Simulated scan of single mutants.
Amino acid sequence: MRLRLRAERRLQRLGRIGKAAANQTAHDNERLLHELQVHQIELEMQNEDLRSARAQLEAALKRYTDLYDFSPLAYFTLDRIGTILQTNVAGARLLGLERSHLGHTRLGAFIATHELPGLNAFLGQVFDAQPVPARELHLAGDHAPPRIVSIEATLAPDRLSCNTVVTDITTLKAQQQQLERIAHYDLLTNLPNRIVLADRLQHAMAQCQRRGRSLAVAYLDLDGFKEVNDQYGHKIGDDLLVILAQRMKAALREGDTLARIGGDEFVAVLVDLEHLQDSTPMLVRLLQSASAPVSLSGVTLQVSASIGVTLYPEDPSNADHLLRHADQAMYQAKQAGRNRYRLFGMHESA
């Protein structure tokens, strides 16, 4: 009986110990569960941040891809020998092929053969990390007008490729040439203007000094042109000027210059003369060309020309004074009866 009592007391004692242990275990489990729940929330928050960052990165990548793909500029990624590693829609359009057909094709295959050394030199400088300006190249093929591109490139950070922009500047070059022509040629007659005249006269004077030859400056003013304009209008007058300009230009030799300097005034530079008399045939032909009848809109028109001439280096003046002297001689020709030429400093006309 006493053993049972002792056993029950031990059991009770063990029960109290077990209950305390159970209480401790439950507390530990509760704390562990709390920590796990907090950690789970932290992971969920981190995943949410990662998902947001990923979405922002994907959106940025899409914007970059759209900008790259749909840019009007042609972008190419090239290796050292010019192999096309990547391009955008504009790049494929520029070369006239689908992007899928451009893989591992060399850009040089689309460049005019005579321009390939320039392209190779350009890429060599880029991959050698040298400063290199944009280079103009002609595309291969029978294009009218020839297609011209400008190429710029920067070396990629891995130094294994370069990022290249190729711009079609064909229209720009044509506009530049047009502006250049407008700046140097008369729009109506297509003859050189004062700027080109001054340059060619200076050049011809220098040649005279080197070769021991002479040149003649002939200042020409049309007689009766104002009356044509007044009677028939500026359209007929302009058409007449165009025809006379063509005729007078054809009356000169290759190497001579005929320029329109304004209104109905022209200047001819007759080069490579050995004697004064060498200019006579051209001067006579100029007079004949200006005075020959012209039929326009059912009307026959006829004007003439007064020409003043000075000879260099017999007249040892600079270019401006040569023009001034020829102009003075032209007025003497008008006063002498028109349709003739007068030599500067002389009183006889032909």
Score class of each variant (00 low, 15 high):
Arg4Asn: 12
Leu5Gln: 14
Arg10Phe: 07
Gln12Glu: 15
Gly15Phe: 10
Gly18Asn: 14
Gln24Asn: 12
His27Arg: 14
Asn29Ile: 09
Glu30Trp: 01
Arg31Gly: 00
Leu33Trp: 03
Gln37Ala: 13
Glu44Asn: 11
Met45Gly: 01
Met45Cys: 03
Gln46Val: 04
Gln46Thr: 01
Glu48Phe: 01
Ala53Glu: 11
Ala55Arg: 15
Gln56His: 13
Leu57Ala: 15
Glu58Lys: 03
Ala60Met: 08
Ala60Arg: 12
Leu61Ser: 13
Lys62Ser: 09
Thr65Val: 08
Asp66Lys: 11
Leu67Pro: 04
Ser71Asp: 13
Ser71Asn: 15
Pro72Gln: 08
Tyr75His: 15
Phe76Met: 07
Ile81Pro: 02
Thr83Gly: 03
Ile84Glu: 09
Ile84Arg: 10
Ile84Val: 14
Leu85Trp: 06
Asn88Phe: 10
Ala92Cys: 09
Leu94Ile: 03
Leu95Asn: 05
Arg99Asn: 12
Gly103His: 14
Arg106Trp: 00
Arg106Ser: 14
Ile111His: 12
His114Trp: 02
Gly118Ser: 09
Gly118Pro: 00
Leu119Asp: 05
Leu119Arg: 10
Asn120Glu: 12
Leu123Trp: 08
Phe127His: 10
Pro131Trp: 00
Val132Ala: 06
Pro133His: 07
Pro133Ser: 08
Ala134Tyr: 03
Leu139Ile: 04
Asp142Asn: 12
Ala144Cys: 12
Ile148Leu: 15
Val149Gly: 03
Val149Trp: 07
Glu152Gln: 14
Ala153Gly: 11
Ala153Pro: 14
Thr154Asn: 05
Leu155Phe: 05
Ser161Pro: 07
Asn163Met: 08
Thr164Lys: 03
Val165Met: 13
Val165Phe: 07
Val165Pro: 09
Val166Asn: 01
Val166Thr: 06
Ile169Gln: 06
Leu172Lys: 14
Ala174Asp: 05
Gln176Arg: 13
Leu179Gln: 12
Glu180His: 14
Ile182Tyr: 12
Ile182Lys: 09
His184Trp: 01
Asp186Val: 09
Ile195Gln: 14
Ile195Leu: 15
Ala204Met: 02
Ala206Cys: 06
Cys208Tyr: 06
Gln209Ser: 10
Arg211Asn: 14
Arg213Phe: 01
Ser214Glu: 12
Glu227Cys: 00
Val228Gly: 10
Asp230Gln: 09
Lys235Ile: 11
Gly237Thr: 07
Asp238Val: 02
Asp238Ala: 04
Leu244His: 11
Ala245Tyr: 10
Ala245Glu: 04
Met248Gln: 07
Met248Glu: 04
Lys249Trp: 00
Leu252Glu: 06
Arg253Val: 01
Glu254His: 12
Thr257Trp: 00
Leu258Asn: 04
Gly263His: 05
Gly263Val: 03
Phe266Cys: 03
Val267Pro: 05
Ala268Asn: 03
Leu270Cys: 06
Leu270Ser: 09
Gln277Glu: 14
Gln277Leu: 02
Val284Arg: 15
Leu287Met: 08
Ser289Ile: 02
Ser291Ala: 15
Pro293Gly: 02
Ser295Asp: 12
Ser295Cys: 10
Ser297Met: 00
Thr300Met: 09
Leu301Val: 01
Gln302Pro: 06
Val303Asn: 07
Gly308Lys: 06
Val309Ile: 08
Pro313His: 05
Pro313Gly: 05
Ala319Val: 06
Leu322Asp: 02
Arg324Lys: 13
Ala326Leu: 08
Ala326Ile: 05
Phe344Ser: 10
Gly345Lys: 07
His347Val: 02
Ser349Trp: 05
